[in-house]
Design a protein around this nucleic acid. Sequence first.
DNA 1: TTGTATGCGTTATCAT
DNA 2: ATGATAACGCATACAA
Lengths: 332, 332
Amino acid sequence: VASSITVHDVAKAAGVSASTVSRALSGNAAVAATTRNRVVEVARQLGYQPNLAARGLITGTTHNIGLVVPDLENPYFASITKSVQSRALASGYSVFIADSDEDTRTELELVHQLSKQVDGLILCSPRMSTSDIAGIAGQTMMVLINREWEGLASVVIDDAEIVRLALEHLHALGHRKVAYVGGPETSWSNQKRWAAIERFAPTFDDLEVSKVGSYAPNFDGGQSAADVVLASGATAAFAYNDLVGLGLLARLNTRGVRVPEDLSVMGIDDVNVATLVSPGLTTVRSPLKKVGRFAVNKLIDLMSPTDRPSSTEDLPVQLVVRQSTSVPPQRR
Amino acid sequence: VASSITVHDVAKAAGVSASTVSRALSGNAAVAATTRNRVVEVARQLGYQPNLAARGLITGTTHNIGLVVPDLENPYFASITKSVQSRALASGYSVFIADSDEDTRTELELVHQLSKQVDGLILCSPRMSTSDIAGIAGQTMMVLINREWEGLASVVIDDAEIVRLALEHLHALGHRKVAYVGGPETSWSNQKRWAAIERFAPTFDDLEVSKVGSYAPNFDGGQSAADVVLASGATAAFAYNDLVGLGLLARLNTRGVRVPEDLSVMGIDDVNVATLVSPGLTTVRSPLKKVGRFAVNKLIDLMSPTDRPSSTEDLPVQLVVRQSTSVPPQRR
DNA sequence: TTGTATGCGTTATCAT
DNA sequence: ATGATAACGCATACAA
């Protein structure tokens, strides 16, 4: 771990007491400028590294945070993870990262493991039950991403607005029968999105949106769903996320169904890979980097409250039209 | 962090001494079965959570490891990260994760930050200088991925075999002029791959491989390189990795160059997204999940040496032929 | 088998 | 402004 040179070694070498060394290096207490310089210099020469375990033992703080995500290989979570770590680094925090592999039990286990060695936790799109979340919240500072519960701090993307933008786009193109390819039942976002669909669909003239089931939120899930979507008679598929959308594109391509001529396809998130395919995937962009930053900001504010109101910027979503959507066949 | 109930609380409640509690819960010392059961039960009831800082202070161990990668949003590193975390969890280790964003300075800073609070470090494709690596190795247990230096433990994918398989494939198709689209100069793998090209190219009849420069190891890098590749007159492009390959495909598509009819394209790694595009990207698969597992195994063996020889399985690479490569134009 | 005593390295409290 | 001392929670050496 660290080198074995302690405050006492520095103290002896600098001709002062251990407490003075501690104060000089902490910087927050009153120390004569000359002694401080001397101590700092000696510490540097000796290569002194404070023992964080000892410090944590007495301060009760670790300067570590934990992040739990369902799947690191999902570019959506990779982006959030990257921004979380980046923002944490800027504030001197190290971050534990844990991948639950979309499994509720693993997720809970990881949370328990981490909660013992962090000052706070960020749970990204947690799949666990609300009662489990409540249990953890009682023990550890916590910020939720893409989930809300009671008074807990959280950062959520506006699922309703995402849905509204998507339906508006498809309806404007002339689509009247749309198939929603659902994500995991345990996904809070999935529930919110379907709820928003049921709320908004009636507001568009003659629009009918059906749900074609619940699929894994990745490429494979999309492939599995494609045939059902086709059979549904819809002219447009609205996928739970971009990966599902890409899976749809792949399977449709295999079956010889042309996109967008025969069927339009939309995703959600505008994950990096959405631009890689052709036709490019029409989608609604989520500000993932911002989500990660905000979550860390909120957590830090929770852990060491300041007076300045934590900036209440919002998280704008935005329609990104590419080639995978167009006018439905009947209208051609 | 943890709850504030200590061994003493448990001891009092169970009617034993603190040391007995410690022993009973550690499990390795001699404790009467009946007392052990009682202590365990009481600890459970009270919700006792050992304070890891205190334990670490005395044992000098944290049961944490750190992983440093150049870019979490790169699916290559995402896969390795996922397998590292998964394997670590299985052994009771938590993992700090750090993203250097391909920046040498950040990388070094992160390493220093982490090295103070882990038992060991995994440096994945480190971009830093060998002298920096040596410096760290002197202080912390460490395993390198995709880099070798002196006697340091490392897990490397066989770059030479990758190159050989790729050149063999392209040559067999009839290609005689191949352009290698290089990755970052700081990438050890990139150096190894180019060295292997220089070594193997002459072994194939009439094969000429040119290097078209050094590009960012991602989608954008590939897009930047496409025009230069075209101008080079090569009939096949061999990209530093899949992302670069996908970038090439995208830009070539924009320019109206047909793949593989006009130009063949190969990648390296067989990252998940390589299958998403059409034409599918021909590539050489790297066993990323295995790489992560092996690295953790080696690190754990380093931290707590056992007698059983750490299994010396190898890391087979494998050609994956998809539609992005075929016979060159002249041969049609 | 169990209890007592000590120390890990640091910060905080209380003197001076 | 600085030094002595205690305390954080745990594991261990030693005594019983």
